[in-house]
C-alpha cells in the first residue's frame, strides 16, 4: 500500500469534469485506488462516488493505491492533480 497527501489546486476541484479525467487515469491501473478526504473514503475508479465526495479547490486529499502497480498508479495520479488536470 502506498499513500500520498495532495492539495487540489485546480479551479473546479474534483467534483466536475476533472473527476472523469481522474477516473479514466485510475482505470489504466490494476491497483485498487481510493481517495480519502477527512473521514470519508471513496473508490477512485467510481465517477459517481468521486463526485459525491465534493472535494473542492484547496482541499487536502489522500490518494491510496494498493496492488501490483501501486507505485506507478500513485505517481500518475499525483502528477495529474499537481498539473491541475490541464485546466
Amino acid at each position: 500500500m502506498r499513500t500520498k497527501k495532495v492539495i487540489l489546486m485546480n479551479e473546479s476541484g474534483l467534483h466536475a469534469r476533472p473527476a472523469s479525467v481522474f477516473v479514466n487515469e485510475a482505470n489504466k491501473f490494476k491497483s485498487d485506488i481510493s481517495i480519502i478526504k477527512e473521514d470519508k473514503e471513496c473508490n477512485g475508479k467510481s465517477i459517481i462516488n468521486l463526485l459525491s465526495l465534493g472535494a473542492a479547490k484547496g482541499d487536502c486529499i489522500t490518494i491510496k493505491t494498493v496492488g501490483e502497480d501501486e507505485e506507478q498508479a500513485l505517481e500518475g495520479l499525483v502528477k495529474l492533480i499537481e498539473n491541475g488536470f490541464g485546466e
Partner: peptide
C-alpha cells in the same frame, strides 16, 4: 460508459 462501468454502483 464511464457511469455504466462504475464499480461502486
Amino acid at each position: 460508459l464511464l457511469i455504466l462501468e462504475d464499480p461502486e454502483i
